[in-house]
Simulated assay, not measured.
Amino acid sequence: MSKRPTLADIATAAGVGIATVDRVLNNRAPVRDDTARRVAEAAEKLGYHALGFISARDKRSLPAMTFGFVLSKEKQPFYQNLAREIEAAVTARRDIRGKAKITFVRATTPEDFCSAIKGLSEQCYAVAGAALNHPQVTRTVAEAAAKGVPFFSILNDFAEPSRSAYYGMDNMRVGRLAAWMLATKIRQSGKVAVFVGGSRWHGHILRETGFVSYFRDNAPDLHVLDPFVNLDTRQITYEATLDLLSRHADLRGIYVAGGGIEGAIAALRESRPAGKIALVGNELTDDRRAALSDGYMTMVISTPLETLCRNLVDHMIKAVLGEPNLPTGPQILDPLLYLPESV
């Protein structure tokens, strides 16, 4: 086992006295910023066990930046997971003193999203969020951008051309993946259903389009029913699923393109044996993991949230600092696929 580095080792590597290292480590007296950084770099290189204290001392000289994030559905596990990853990505940065300010809209209306975006743009260096595709929202983002506040869309690409970039999955591809899984699992004629959150969620519409196009091209024996709008809610999805099962004896599969899939899971648990109806949804949560394990879900297509948040925060910082030649197009992430045998 290698010897733990000492204060003397750090002092030698940094070219300072032991007393200076002690002052930096224990914040006993003021130390010049360049000296504190030199000590921190030496400690990091040597793997000193108290580096966290030195870094905290050194971090005072770093630029302070507050970033705003607009999310919805505060009680949904997916958005709770996303909020945690955002906080972690901002906290992990060692080149700034970052703070994440997250606003959850109470209702998914254009007015609520606009209010949240406007409020955060007045307090933050840059803003990101998932919101509706709506002219009013686009105008609000354009107004923030005109004042020098970069805005990034996540999960659902909206507010073009004013937004700085989009971070998320290729939603058309996600829909085709869902269709491929259902067709592969079903392997017989019948009907399949698709739920979307609403017509203003462009990502859901793209998923529906990819879903329908796959069946048209590759599985014509499976008829896709007209899409059901569930407003991303459990109760509407639950009631609609029970209705579908009662009216369509040849229903073979369901894809929930947005939220609310817990309602479909509950309806299937009440009325069908596990595996009788193939079910695909998005974003892995505890409920969906359990449904995969029990055989009530066939596949979950999930956003790599850690990667999304890490890359997003990096881009936001660079935009604030005015770095040139930053990408402005969609920054597409590969989906994570979860099957019953992989959870």
Rank of each mutant, 00 (worst) to 15 (best):
V256N: 13
K118E: 15
G263V: 05
V320F: 07
V127K: 09
S121E: 07
R60C: 10
N230R: 04
S55L: 15
G203K: 05
N27M: 12
Y255V: 04
D243K: 12
Y238S: 02
P227Q: 09
A249T: 13
D170Q: 03
L284T: 00
H223W: 10
I54K: 01
A107E: 15
D250A: 07
E208Y: 14
A131P: 01
S115N: 13
Q80C: 04
N311P: 01
T12V: 13
K185D: 13
T237L: 00
W201F: 11
G119P: 08
A266R: 15
P77K: 05
N133F: 10
S199C: 11
D334M: 09
D314W: 00
I236C: 08
L326F: 08
T108A: 14
F151H: 10
Q123V: 07
I86C: 00
I236H: 10
S55R: 15
L62S: 06
R207E: 10
T20I: 10
K45E: 13
V300W: 02
R163N: 06
K318W: 03
D217Q: 15
A219Y: 02
T328S: 14
E270F: 06
F104S: 04
D95M: 03
T20E: 03
D157F: 08
H202P: 09
T103H: 15
L206T: 11
E208H: 13
R200S: 15
A178M: 06
Y255A: 04
E283F: 01
P324I: 04
A42V: 05
A11W: 09
T303P: 04
V280K: 03
P63F: 02
R94T: 14
G119T: 10
G168W: 01
E160S: 12
F78I: 00
E341T: 15
V127I: 07
K73M: 13
I317E: 04
M169G: 00
G260I: 04
L46F: 10
Q123C: 05
R32H: 12
L51V: 05
A43S: 11
D22E: 04
L71M: 08
Q123E: 15
D334H: 08
S342Y: 08
L308E: 02
P135E: 09
A43R: 03
V31N: 01
D112F: 08
S246I: 05
K147C: 12
V149E: 11
R288N: 09
Y214F: 15
P324E: 02
E239H: 15
A8Y: 10
A92W: 00
